[in-house]
Amino acid sequence: MSHHGKKQRTFLRLTVSQRIQHVILFTSTGLLILTGFMLLGERWAIDLFGSAGNTIFYWRGVVHRIAGVAVTLVCLYHMVYVVVSEEGRSWLRDMLPRLKDGVDAGQNVSFMLGFRKARPKMDRFTYMEKLEYFSVYFGMFIVILTGTMMWTEWLWPKFYLDVADALHLGEATLAALAIIVGHIFTVHYNPHVYPMNKAFIDGQISEEIMLEEHPLWLDRLEAEEATATAAATEKDVEKRDDA
């Protein structure tokens, strides 16, 4: 539905399964960032907790571990999902990097700088979205591996744990900042989606944004629809003929 009062077409951007995966991913990641960076607090800030500090520290650890398990499970589930299910396979197929993404990136930058009249037409996932998506794989691999090492600390030499700690912290900092600058800004502060892109709630994307961000995908969906309608009409015709 459009806020202009005029009925506008919408398309399914995120399925129910994808939305649930996303909710688990962002709640647990948020909790992990919060409870993780609590370990970097300066003494004066920690002292503000007063006598509750010990309890807060205990729950910090519990929540960090629960959220860590949740994020690990959702990542493992997602990796099965993109191979096994039909919608997952289509997701992964459209997500795989192509040569066109490089061309898109170059053309988009030159558009933004004012050297081109129009943005390059992009498909279901833009080069930025693909970059973000595969960064999550890379980041999750590192934090889950090093996090598991630190959880089973008695099995590892101290130096390996120091390395794990450095990687865990470095990757977490990178991910937290990348999410804030790269993702939150794109889906919340982009002028044409502000205050937020509601696709993560209802899964729908408006035709307006489709045209702006994913025109090639819109073409594909319309072509598919046309084929389906044609097939249905053909069936109807056949039915009538039979009758």
Binding site: V109, G170, L174, V181, G182
Partner: peptide, 18 residues
């Protein structure tokens, strides 16, 4: 990681601003 953070976050920020 310092280089990555400056590069990635700076790059993302620049892209956003553009």
């Amino acid at each position: 990681y310092k280089i990555l953070i400056v590069g990635v976050v700076g790059g993302l920020g620049m892209h956003r601003l553009l």
